[in-house]
């Protein structure tokens, strides 16, 4: 079950692995924010450099990044083709009935393609180097300011941790259910819409029931260990921003400023 994007964490000890998860999440958001301002070769080159340096610094195999692109391939191709065919500004290169391909259209399509790749690469760096539970603690840190308006940050972050913890468990259970049903002769990919939606029922009911059973068990266990909702919780791993984080942020903010200066 390594199809899931969240479950692809690969343990390691690279610079990126050791960064504070909260700052990694923020960096990804910042990266996506500034890449939308890039609009010429120089700025896209700079963004590519940033992404590639991050990939190299994460010391993970390039294979995983290629694999990350695959599920999105048709969306990327479709977007690029639409861009090529319908962006009719600039010099016309050739015309085929009502389809016109122009140099501007090709250029923008190329940039959109690169943007897709870079965003996927960068977000893959985050998911490859950050344990799902570390992501949850990063989210908690980022939500902290909301505590001022009485938002239940700790409860929320505990919920996210529990759900991330149970994603693989529930997926394994689902797989078992699907296999059990297929071995009884259920063909999930056949039939009309009603027949197919009805085939979901023997998967979904056990999934929900088992979730409720897990909830009962874990709820009781938490009760037994004296968990009280809303109290200040301490964490097993405490992540702190280090020199690496500050240096990375310095590089990214300078790049961000450069993007604004160099964009055409």
């Amino acid at each position: 079950m390594n199809k899931l994007l969240l479950g692809r964490y690969i343990p390691g000890n690279s610079i990126v692995h050791r960064m504070d998860p909260a700052s990694k999440i923020l960096l990804s958001i910042f990266f996506v924010f500034i890449i939308f301002f890039a609009n010429n070769l120089v700025t896209y080159g700079l963004m590519t450099l940033l992404a590639l340096v991050s990939v190299v610094a994460s010391r993970t195999s390039l294979r995983f990044f290629i694999r990350g692109i695959r599920p999105l391939l048709w969306v990327i191709i479709f977007t690029v083709i639409i861009q090529i065919l319908f962006d009719n500004t600039g010099h016309q290169l050739f015309k085929f009935y009502f389809l016109t391909v122009t140099d501007n259209g090709l250029k923008t399509a190329g940039f959109i393609f690169i943007r897709f790749l870079l965003i996927i690469f960068f977000s893959t760096v985050l998911t490859l180097t950050t344990d799902p539970l570390a992501i949850a603690s990063g989210i908690e840190k980022l939500l902290m300011p909301l505590k001022k308006i009485k938002f239940p940050v700790y409860t929320m972050s505990l919920m996210i941790s529990i759900s991330l913890r149970f994603v693989p468990t529930l997926m394994d259970e689902t797989e078992t259910i699907i296999k059990a049903q297929s071995s009884r002769g259920v063909k999930f990919k056949e039939g009309n819409i009603l027949a197919r939606s009805k085939k979901m029922i023997p998967i979904l009911i056990p999934l929900f029931i088992s979730s409720f059973k897990h909830a009962e068990g874990l709820g009781r266990a938490m009760e037994a260990r004296g968990y009280k909702d809303g109290d200040n919780r301490s964490q097993y791993h405490v992540y702190k921003a280090s020199k690496i984080d500050f240096c990375t942020w310095a590089v990214f903010i300078i790049s961000g400023i450069l993007i604004f200066v160099l964009r055409g």
Binding site: M159, S163, S211, R220, Y227, D229
Partner: peptide
Amino acid sequence: NFKLVARALFI
């Protein structure tokens, strides 16, 4: 606690 975990599992 049950509700909290149940919510988490729905997520």
